[in-house]
Design a protein around this nucleic acid. Sequence first.
DNA 1: TATAGCTGTTGCCGATTCGGCAGCAAGGCG
DNA 2: CGCCTTGCTGCCGAATCGGCAACAGCTATA
Lengths: 313, 313
Amino acid sequence: MRFHAPALYYFHAVRRTGSIRAAARTLNVASSAVSRQVLKLEEEIGAPLFERTARGLTLTTVGEMLARHVMTVLQDHDRFRSDVQSLSGTWRGSVSIACIESLAESLLPGLIASHRGRARRVTFTTQVMGSADVLDALSRGEADIGIAMALRHPQDLRQVALKRFRLGAIVAADHPLARRRTVTLAQCLAFPIIHALPELSIYHLLQPLIAQLAETPEPAVQANSIDLMRELAARGVGVAIQTQIGIGRLANSGQLKFLPLDNDGSPVWSDLGVYVRAERVLPAYTESFLQELVRELGDRERQENADHGKVGA
Amino acid sequence: MRFHAPALYYFHAVRRTGSIRAAARTLNVASSAVSRQVLKLEEEIGAPLFERTARGLTLTTVGEMLARHVMTVLQDHDRFRSDVQSLSGTWRGSVSIACIESLAESLLPGLIASHRGRARRVTFTTQVMGSADVLDALSRGEADIGIAMALRHPQDLRQVALKRFRLGAIVAADHPLARRRTVTLAQCLAFPIIHALPELSIYHLLQPLIAQLAETPEPAVQANSIDLMRELAARGVGVAIQTQIGIGRLANSGQLKFLPLDNDGSPVWSDLGVYVRAERVLPAYTESFLQELVRELGDRERQENADHGKVGA
DNA sequence: TATAGCTGTTGCCGATTCGGCAGCAAGGCG
DNA sequence: CGCCTTGCTGCCGAATCGGCAACAGCTATA
């Protein structure tokens, strides 16, 4: 089923691994074979594809163009293969997801489990990383579906969906703030704050708001893990600020309380985007999961905003 | 620069020509080589790609899937090649256009001439055909840009632009109707009518309107050529109904007059769509021409509608 | 500074593949 | 029936691919 020129697969592997010998290892061929195919490609195209350093190989401008082409070819090849297989009734393939931490705890596990219940032959790979890395992973073809904060919008990606969730304070059930229905940022700052490090997108959403306040108090804890921040809040260390979708089970168990943030009467939104590489048609099984993901995200958005509506009224 | 597997090019040629021997002739190789590559592809995929008849080969369902994949690969390969060449400053390539007859006389010649004045290395291929054939040619990958009546909207095509032009009566300058500023369909039918055959999209736009009228008079001439209909009108044979954009130079020379159609006080629109194959990124030179085309069409649309506005007021 | 380890590249050679030639059987057409 | 076309298949030379081993260049570490 791999009817494309070997040079394509070899080039692709070299680009991913950054080294000819490493690529040869993953391909189970001799490094000389890989070297020769790359050289032949460069001769055919008439320009060097890599810059050779002692450490390995880096793409040139032409190399990046070829990488984009090869990615298009191989991804569409996967789609073709899945189309052929769906003719015989069997879905088989793998979906690779890159997402930010907020979704890894509550939303994705349920979705994947329910999907695998119906399509047993589809395997999943999920990687948690920062928003910027999610978009990079998609561009490099290392993931099929990406979920990230919608801050910037890279040109080579297609935004499949955009959902807004309210930011809010997360406190332990016995915290003084827990009786309130909404909180302002100033009210939160009266207590110890569990602050996100700049690696997390929430930092960039909150920073401008904090900068507007008169005083900028020292945060009690700074962390780069949503998980850790949530657990700290549950143990009464302080107030963490997150989106409700990132809380998950602990919120339902009653240990935690989510209080929508109210900034001078207006909510603070965090935009969550679902991305796919543009110039690509997804395989049927990937498209199917993607639509479930978008629908589920939309349900959560509606549900949470309805909750807050009730609370605010 | 052709670094893809030979089997892809061979399969593509077989699909286009419908025969292995014909494909071999266009490829300048032995027919046995082509036959073997096709057989190898079928073995690799595990399903027949063609149905063998005594007349030649026809695609199976799997074959059509592979054809789509190969088309994506080869078209993106062209784009890659043009991207690399644009690095060294030279634009070289060919743009293939499929359009309906209305545009072949007035709009396209000027556009192509002015574009070639700036980019001498870009060659053009234009084919005139019916609206349905335009869309088919795009789907089959036989054209890069298609211009057709926007009647239906096929799924594998992307509508780049949609412009509306008024239908109107075309009469000789000394025709009794020529003094009017607008005409109704009933007024036209008082004179001999030069009617379009069903092969032309105008037929399908006019037929429902004519059916509403009390009497359906016998047309004086029926034709499937915009050109012929226009020349007949210029010679005073009767009234032809077309879009103004299809008239071209003869209108400016004063021999012909265009009278916007007025159907019970409302204009009759004809929607002109510009199409490209979806799941495709165009080469830079194609994209450049496409944008000029869309801009020019927009200019015409604005200009003509402004004219009619003045006339109608 | 010397050594060990890594990098990509290059002869050499066997295995594989590709492609051309000629001939085969099968089906349409006059 | 003959004639034409179609796709397919042995046969064989040419081209390509890939593995082994050795080489030169660079980096990090002792």
